[in-house]
Every structure is written in C-alpha cells, then in structure tokens.
C-alpha cells in the first residue's frame, strides 16, 4: 500500500542532491533553503489538515516559538543551539496542548479560530514585549549551527543540512500515515462516529497530531533562526500562517506529498514571477512583491474550486487519463 511513498523518498532525495549542481547559484540555493523551512512546517500541517481534517491558522506562531526560543536562549543565555531547539519543541508542545485540548474536544472547526486568535496573540507579544523579544527590532547575532565541530556556515552546507532534516521529517510523517495511528486518523476524517464505535479515541488522536504538527513548525522555526542569524516578528504573523495553509491546500491536502510540492512551488513562485517580469520588462508589465497576496489568493481559490484534491492529485489524475487514452489507442491499433 505505502511502498510507493517510500520509493518516493528515494526519488525525492536524488532530485535534492542533483538540484544544487544544476542551479549552482548561491542566491537560488538560499531560496531553496527557505523553501525547506516552509516544507517542514507544511509536512506537519498536512498531517493535521489531510489526516485529522482540521485547519490551523496559527502555525506561524509555532515557527515563532521555535525561532524565539533558539534566538533568546543562545544569544542571551549562551545555551547550546541543540538544547535551545529542544526547549523550543517543549514550549511548542505545551502551547499546542493548551490550545488543542479544549478546541479539539469539540466537533467542528473551532481549532481554526482558536489558532487564529493564538497566532495573533503570539505575534502581538513578540512585537510588544520589547524588553524580552527585542520588539520590532528583533534579535540579532544568532550563532551559526555546528555539527560535531563542523560549522554549517554556507548556503550550500545549510541546503544539505536542512533538506536532510526535511527528508527525515517526511520519513517520520509517512511512517505515521502507514501505521495503526495513521489509519485511525484517516478513519476519523472519514466518519467520526464510525471511528468512535471502533474504539478510536477521536479527540485524543486529533490532539496528538496537532501537537506533532506544532513540533514540525517549531523545529523549522529554530533552524530558520540559525540560518538567517537575525529574527524579528515579521515572518511570524497571521499572513504566514495563512500562507502555510495555502501551500498545503494547493499541493493537495490529502497527501503529504502534496504539502511537499505545494510548499516548494509557492516558495519559489515569487522568484519565478519576478524573473519573468525582468524578462518581459519594457512591455509595461512589471511584477512587484505587492502582488504576492493577490497571486496566492487567486491560486488557492482556483485550486479549491477546480482541483480540490490539489496539484499533486490533479497531476496524478491527468497522468492516469493520459495512460488510459494511450492504452486505448494502442489496443485499437492492434
């Protein structure tokens, strides 16, 4: 059943190894590093959306919790980055439990609004608690990561490091899906009543998967902080949470691979668009980052209306249809 997914990991890894050699430009590699942070968050979020049928509109806050834990503990208290990451995870888990337990006990989509409120509060605090978080000025001089004494101090090194983390995260996620627990989650999504009558503690599973998705984002946030060496509240607002949901939905909610594809695609999309606009410059068309919102909104709306399974499933169906068409043609030829 799930063998394809594990083969997918191998193919995906090969593509990841080859890519830097093809693009060979630090700027573009840097963009793919950013794509990896989104990818990691989106894998977690897709477990929640696709397998527990719940939306979180506050995942950027978990990114923020990871990033600020790492930044504060390493810069102000001199902790080891790895220890700081662990503390970030613990904080994220506690927050996820505080938000998740009351709102996931209820049927329906209370989690969406609870996380939206939570996300806004965290963002407000990062801006307002100037003494603690540095406020809008943020925190700088966050140390670079070291693994056994080797500093990960270039874009290419970080690219390798972070994508290994993503692949490990993907591996964990796939293991969860193809397990008793993953089956239980899909069952909850299919029919909560039938799942309950099969002995599945529905709210507990939903809470656990929400906690796991928060861990993914917290880790992504910590690694983000160590990559850019400087953080401010900017990237941890509601808009980024909504963007993460967009990535998962565009790629395809019901498959983890959809989240992988959606997050990479939408992370590099602004770059592609601005490159195109440079090419067509002089024709009166100019692309500005201001248009990002408009474009993300249009893509999400178009996908939800016409391809609710997302790009991943859409492409898969397209292939199947082509295959059918092709086999029919050849058989009629014979």
């Amino acid at each position: 059943m799930g063998t394809k997914d594990y083969l997918g990991i191998i193919w995906f890894s090969i593509i990841l190894v080859v890519t830097p050699f093809i693009i060979g430009n630090d700027y573009y590699i840097g963009i793919l590093v950013f794509a990896a942070f989104n990818c990691l968050s989106c894998i977690g979020l897709s477990l929640l959306m696709g397998y527990a049928g719940q939306i979180s509109l506050g995942h950027a806050a978990f990114l923020g919790i990871g990033a600020y834990s790492s930044a504060l503990l390493t810069v102000k208290m001199g902790w080891s980055p790895w220890l700081a990451i662990v503390l970030g995870i613990i904080l994220a888990v506690i927050m996820a439990l505080v938000i998740g337990i009351p709102s996931l006990r209820l049927k329906g989509h209370y989690l969406a609004m609870a996380t939206l409120g939570f996300g806004s509060i965290i963002h407000i605090v990062t801006v307002a608690a100037v003494d603690f978080t540095g406020g809008p000025a943020g925190i700088s001089q966050i140390p670079t990561l070291n693994i056994f004494g080797f500093p990960i101090n270039s874009d290419v090194k970080y690219y390798a490091f972070i994508w290994i983390i993503v692949v490990i995260g993907l591996f964990f996620a796939l293991n969860i899906i193809h397990s008793r627990s993953g089956r239980a989650l899909r069952a909850i999504h299919g029919s909560e009543d039938a799942a309950g009558s099969s002995g599945i503690h529905t709210s507990r599973y939903k809470i656990r998967i929400f906690v796991i998705s928060a861990i993914y984002s917290s880790i992504a946030g910590s690694f983000y902080a160590h990559y850019v060496n400087y953080i401010d509240p900017g990237p941890f607002g509601i808009m980024h949470s909504v963007l993460l949901v967009t990535m998962v939905a565009v790629g395809g909610m019901h498959k983890v691979w959809g989240a992988v594809i959606g997050s990479i695609l939408l992370s590099v999309l602004p770059e592609i668009l601005s490159t195109i606009s440079e090419v067509v410059e002089g024709y009166g068309i100019e692309y500005k980052p201001d248009y990002d919102t408009l474009i993300y909104g249009s893509i999400l709306l178009a996908i939800m209306l016409f391809l609710p399974g997302g790009i991943f499933q859409g492409v898969g169906d397209g292939f199947k249809r082509l295959k059918k068409l092709f086999t029919r043609k050849t058989s009629s030829a014979v």
């Binding site: 969406a112 709306l301 209306l305």
Partner: peptide
C-alpha cells in the same frame, strides 16, 4: 458552484477569497 460542499473546503474557500480581496485592496 461547489458541488458536495465539505465544511473544510468551504472554509478554505472563504480564506482564499479573503486573501484575494486583501490583495485586490492592496493593488
């Protein structure tokens, strides 16, 4: 136009419209 509207899908659609309207307003 959404046939077989699931709540989750409708919610995401309204999120999409909100992003779109925000983008339009900004433009």
């Amino acid at each position: 136009p959404v046939k077989e509207p699931g709540i989750l899908r409708l919610i995401i659609i309204t999120i999409a419209v909100s992003i779109l309207l925000k983008g339009i307003a900004m433009c």
